[in-house]
Design a protein around this nucleic acid. Structure first.
Length: 661
DNA sequence: ATTAGGG
DNA sequence: CCCTAAT
C-alpha cells in the first residue's frame, strides 16, 4: 500500500526548488511550508522518508514546468500534501494557504480544469449531437472569463484566510480553520468580488475544508460562482457539499466516470444525484503528466462506451431542465444530498454496475448487443433468495455458455481488442459443478475460432483450458476433489447455490492465475455437490418436484454429448452420462437424449449458411458440430443401436474425426 | 432403471 | 425441459 507520499516540505528546507522557482507573487507573510508525509492506509500521516521526498520533489518540479497545478498549489498553500494512494492516484490536500498563492493556485487549477473540460467537450462532440455539449462548455467559458479578469490583490487576503485551515488527518476533518475574513466574500458583482469568490471556490476545492467557516451568504456566493446561478437553499451542509463536490468532480480525472461527473459538474450534481458525487476526495491522476491525464481520460471515456454515453446524454437533459428550475429543484436535491454520504471512489463503478445488474438495466443488455452475441435476458438463479448472483445465458455457436454478468468488468477494460480477448481467454473458463463459465470475451474468442477453423481448434482450445483444470467434462471420470482451478473467473459464486453466497459476485475476472481459495471448499466434488442444490426444484401441483429453469447447454456440453454419442452410440444415454457427464449432475440421461434430439433436428434442418441464426438472438450451432451430429445420426441408422456392435464401430471412427480431447 | 416420444 | 408410456 503504498501510501506513498505526502508532500510536505519546507520551503526553505527540503524543497526550496518548487517554491523558489516560482516567483512569489506577493509577499507572503507566512512562509510557505511544505511537509512531505506518507499517508498510511489508515489515513495516518507519517513523515516521509528522504527517498520519498526526492521522489516527490521530482514530481513537483515536473509539475512546475508542465502543470502548474500542483506546483502552484504548493506554493500557494502553506501546507500541501500530495499523497499517492495505492491506486497510484495522487491526492491533493491543502491545509493552509497564503494569500498570494491563491492566485497562482487558482489559475493553475483553472487551467487544469479547463483542460479537462476541453477534453470532455471534445469527446462529447464526437459522441453527442452538437447541442448537448454546450452546457459544460458554456459553463466553462464563464468560469474562464471570470478567472481571466485579473483580480485585485485585495481580495486575496480574504480568500487566503478562508483557506487557512489545517487538516488534521486524512479522514478529512479540518477543524482548525481560521475564520474567513469578513469582507472577504462580497456579494458585489464587481470583478474583484467575483474573483474572490471564484478563488474561494477553488480553495474549497482544495479540500472542502474551510467551507464550514463560511456563512450561508458566503456559501451562496460560492455556489453562484461555482454553478453559475443562485440558489435558495439555506442548508449550509448542502451548499458546502454541492460546492465542494462540483469542484472536486471537475478535478477528478480518474475513470470513465469522469465525463459523466463532469457533466454533472455543474448540473447533475444539482439534480440529483446519484452519482458522481460519490467521490469527494480530490484525486488528481498523476498531475505531472498532463498528457497522460488527458489521454487516460479520453481513453477511459471511449472505453466506457455505450452505457456511459447514454448516461451522459441523460445527464445532459436532466441538467438542462434543472438549469431552468431554481428553488424546487434545489430543495429536492438538497434532501437527497443531505442523506448521501460520499462513497469511496473506488467503489463507485462497482456500485454502479451493481445497480445496473440489479435493476436489470437495459443498458447492460445493450452492451452485450454491441458485442454481437446473442444473448438472453439475464436470468436469475432459481433460488434468488439464496443467492443474488445473476447469470447471463449467452448462446454461443448454438450452444449456450453461461456467462456471469460482467458489467463491472466491462467498464474496466476495452471492450474488444485482441489483447483483452486473449486476456480473458486466459482467465476464462472454469468448470464448476459441471458448468463452464467463460468470460464473454473468451467465449467470443472461442467462437470466432470456431467459425474460422471449425470445431477442431475451438474444441482444442476449450479443452485445453478446461483440461488444465482437470475439469473436462468427458474425462470427468472424476477429477480428484482437490483439483484446484487456477484460472479464476470467480465462477463458483455464480452457480453455486449451495455454496455460501459470497454476497456479490465478483465479476472482475482478472487474468490472475491464482488458486481458488473460495472454490476449493465448495467444488470438491462437482457431481456430489451439484446433484441436489444446483437443480432448483420446484414443487408442482401434483406434488412432484420439477426442475425449474432451463439450463442452457454449454458449447462444451454439446461437444461432450457428441463425443459421448460417438463413443457409445445414440440411445445409450445413461452410459454416455456416466462417461461424459459424470460431472454434470444436472444433466440427466433424459436431458442428453433430449438434447441430442434437438441437435439432430438442428442438423437436418435447412442447411443453414454458416451464420445462420436459427433462432434470432442466439448464435447458431456451428456447422461443424451439426455435421458431426448428422454423421453420427447416419451411422446410427446404418448400425441400429444394438448395444454390442454399434458401440465400437462408431466410436473409433468418429473420435478421430473430431480430434477432440 | 432406462428409453423413446410427445408436449 | 417435463411427463409418460413402454421396456
Amino acid at each position: 500500500m503504498g501510501p506513498v507520499t505526502g508532500i510536505d516540505h519546507n520551503d526553505d528546507g527540503k524543497l526550496d526548488k518548487s517554491s523558489s522557482a516560482l516567483p512569489p507573487r506577493k509577499q507572503i507573510a507566512n512562509p510557505v511550508v511544505y511537509k512531505l508525509v506518507r499517508v498510511e492506509g489508515d489515513g495516518r500521516l507519517v513523515p516521509a522518508t528522504d527517498d520519498e521526498v526526492m521522489e516527490v520533489e521530482g514530481f513537483l518540479e515536473c509539475d512546475n514546468s508542465e502543470m502548474r497545478v500542483v506546483a502552484d498549489n504548493g506554493q500557494s498553500l502553506e501546507c500541501i500534501s500530495i499523497e499517492r494512494s495505492s491506486s497510484g492516484k495522487l491526492r491533493l490536500e491543502c491545509s493552509k494557504g497564503t494569500a498570494e498563492a491563491d492566485l497562482g493556485k487558482l489559475n493553475s487549477k483553472l487551467q487544469y480544469i479547463e483542460q479537462i473540460l476541453q477534453k470532455v467537450k471534445h469527446e462529447e462532440k464526437l459522441r453527442l449531437s452538437c447541442g448537448a455539449s454546450q452546457f459544460s462548455a458554456d459553463k466553462f467559458h464563464v468560469m474562464d472569463g471570470k478567472i481571466q479578469s485579473d483580480p485585485p490583490d485585495q481580495e486575496i487576503p480574504s480568500v487566503a484566510s478562508s483557506l487557512n485551515c489545517t487538516r488534521s488527518n486524512q479522514s478529512g476533518s479540518f477543524d482548525q480553520c481560521s475564520r474567513p475574513s469578513e469582507g472577504a466574500v462580497e456579494s458585489g458583482s464587481s470583478a474583484p468580488a467575483v474573483y474572490s469568490k471564484l478563488k474561494r471556490d477553488f480553495s474549497m476545492f482544495e479540500g472542502e475544508i474551510c467551507l464550514d467557516k463560511l456563512s450561508i451568504r458566503e456559501l451562496h456566493e460560492l455556489f453562484k460562482v461555482t454553478f453559475g446561478r443562485e440558489t435558495t437553499v439555506k442548508d449550509k451542509q448542502w451548499l458546502k457539499r454541492r460546492i465542494a463536490i462540483s469542484l472536486t468532480n471537475s478535478c477528478d480525472v480518474s475513470a470513465t466516470t469522469f465525463i459523466v461527473k463532469d457533466n454533472k459538474f455543474v448540473r447533475k450534481c444539482e439534480d440529483s444525484s446519484e452519482n458522481g458525487n460519490a467521490e469527494a476526495s480530490i484525486t488528481l491522476e498523476n498531475m505531472p503528466a498532463e498528457e497522460d491525464v488527458n489521454f487516460k481520460d479520453s481513453s477511459a471515456a471511449e472505453d466506457s462506451g455505450f452505457e456511459d454515453n447514454l448516461v451522459v446524454a441523460e445527464t445532459r437533459l436532466g441538467n438542462h431542465n434543472m438549469e431552468h428550475k431554481s428553488g424546487s429543484g434545489d430543495h429536492q436535491s438538497e434532501q437527497r444530498a443531505a442523506k448521501r454520504i460520499r462513497k469511496p471512489t473506488k467503489r463507485y463503478i462497482e456500485e454502479l454496475s451493481e445497480n445496473e445488474s440489479r435493476d436489470h438495466h437495459p443498458r447492460l443488455l445493450g452492451s452485450n448487443k454491441n458485442i454481437g452475441i446473442g444473448y438472453t435476458k439475464p436470468a436469475r438463479n432459481a433460488s434468488s433468495e439464496m443467492r443474488t448472483s445473476i447469470t447471463r445465458l449467452d448462446t454461443l455457436g448454438g450452444c449456450c455458455i453461461q456467462i456471469p454478468c460482467v458489467s463491472r468488468v466491462r467498464k474496466s477494460y476495452p471492450r474488444r481488442n485482441m489483447t483483452s480477448l486473449m486476456w480473458c481467454l486466459c482467465t476464462a473458463a472454469v468448470v464448476e459443478a459441471g458448468y463452464i463459465f467463460l468470460e464473454m470475451e473468451a467465449a467470443i474468442f472461442l467462437f470466432q475460432i470456431f467459425l474460422q477453423t471449425g470445431m477442431g481448434e475451438a474444441e482444442k482450445l476449450a479443452n485445453r483450458v478446461l483440461g488444465e483444470h482437470g475439469l473436462h467434462g468427458s474425462n470427468s471420470d472424476n477429477k480428484s476433489p482437490d483439483k484446484v482451478l487456477k484460472l479464476t473467473s470467480t465462477p463458483g459464486k455464480f452457480h453455486q447455490p449451495s455454496a455460501p453466497e459470497p454476497g456479490k459476485e465478483q465479476c472482475a475476472v482478472k487474468c490472475t492465475i491464482e488458486v481458488q481459495q473460495e472454490l476449493k471448499p465448495k467444488q470438491t466434488d462437482p457431481s456430489s455437490r451439484t446433484s441436489d442444490d444446483d437443480i432448483t426444484t420446484v414443487p408442482t401441483a401434483k406434488g412432484g418436484m420439477r426442475r425449474k429453469h432451463h439450463r442452457a447447454w454449454t458449447l462444451v456440453e454439446v461437444m461432450n454429448l457428441v463425443e459421448g454419442v460417438s463413443q457409445c452410440g445414440a440411445g445409450r444415454w445413461s452410459e454416455i452420462k456416466r462417461l461424459s457427464f459424470s460431472s454434470y449432475s444436472y444433466r440427466t440421461s433424459v436431458d442428453l437424449k433430449d438434447k441430442w434430439r434437438n441437435l439432430l433436428k438442428a442438423s437436418y434442418a435447412p442447411a443453414d449458411d454458416g451464420m445462420n441464426s436459427r433462432k434470432h438472438g442466439t448464435i447458431p450451432i456451428p456447422e461443424s458440430i451439426l455435421a458431426r451430429v448428422r454423421e453420427l445420426a447416419e451411422m446410427n441408422l446404418q448400425v441400429p443401436p444394438n448395444l454390442s456392435s454399434s458401440k465400437l464401430t462408431t466410436g473409433n471412427v468418429l473420435v478421430d474425426r473430431s480430434g477432440l480431447l
